[in-house]
Design a protein around this nucleic acid. Structure first.
Lengths: 136, 136
DNA sequence: TTGTACTGTAATAATTTTAATTACAGTAAA
DNA sequence: TTTACTGTAATTAAAATTATTACAGTACAA
């Protein structure tokens, strides 16, 4: 997972929750976040596949929340962003497999990565987008 | 935090725990992990500042555990690696500060990043390096 | 007392990853 | 039928990560 993706997606979702019912264009969102519109649209793609937003093509189109902010948790956003990757990573190099440790370390690490991701989900699950938005 | 640093440091620590009492050179460790010796020495620096390893300069020098693997938790290693950074990141761009959300989002995100890091520490705290090493 | 094998660290180069940019097909409202 | 969008691909630019080279300092040992 790209570490800043969660920040970008939560920022987008907060904007949508703050101005509910409106269709927001990726250009306007990008202007607010000061990032490229194409990057915004890539993030929106993941959020849409997870059912967190709706989108409308054509003139006056854009995106808006797919359900009430009360029914969206920060964990939902985290999971949408994370996809099948982990927050932590293996080293890109393959360790010496003839070594007792090196031959098995990656599977043990992956197991820890799952635990870590689940711990993050557990801490974010009780936090609603509605509550987060209300801080502003 | 560089996401793969934790993997590298845990791999190193597992090697040291598996062959306790021996002085391991960064060259040998690097050979086992298949990464550059200088990168190993950089990881060792953080582990040493946290008191997790001892080092000896000069011929026949190297590194070894600074205390029993039973008294080292995976959270200790995580914290050594993480330093003052977070597992998650802000976007590198500064959002539109004239926007109600953009002006305050980063401080709210940082607060979540702290919670996330603490959740990871909580899940890793009960796991000792000794137990991890014994899986191999 | 000198060679050898290390740590520790800096500087730089190569590589990979991430973000930005450009471009355009498709869609729907006006 | 023009305009303003989504959606996506391809390419370029920038940033972050990893590797490499180099060398000063240390300690053991012949």
């Amino acid at each position: 997972m790209v570490k800043s993706k969660f920040s970008i997606s939560l920022h987008i979702m907060t904007l949508l929750a703050y101005y509910p019912g409106e269709w927001h264009s990726s250009a306007k969102i990008a202007e607010s976040l000061k990032i490229n519109p194409v990057l915004v649209r890539k993030e929106l793609k993941a959020l849409k596949s997870s059912g967190l937003i709706d989108s409308k093509e054509g003139k006056n189109g854009g995106v808006k929340l797919g359900k009430s902010a009360k029914n969206i948790s920060l964990a939902d956003i985290f999971e949408a962003v994370k996809g099948s990757s982990h927050v932590l990573n293996l080293s890109s190099n393959v360790p010496d497999v003839s070594c007792k440790i090196g031959g098995q370390i990656n599977e043990k690490l992956l197991s820890i990565f799952d635990e870590v991701d689940n711990a993050i989900i557990d801490i974010l699950e009780p936090q609603s987008l509605e509550a987060f938005k209300n801080q502003f």
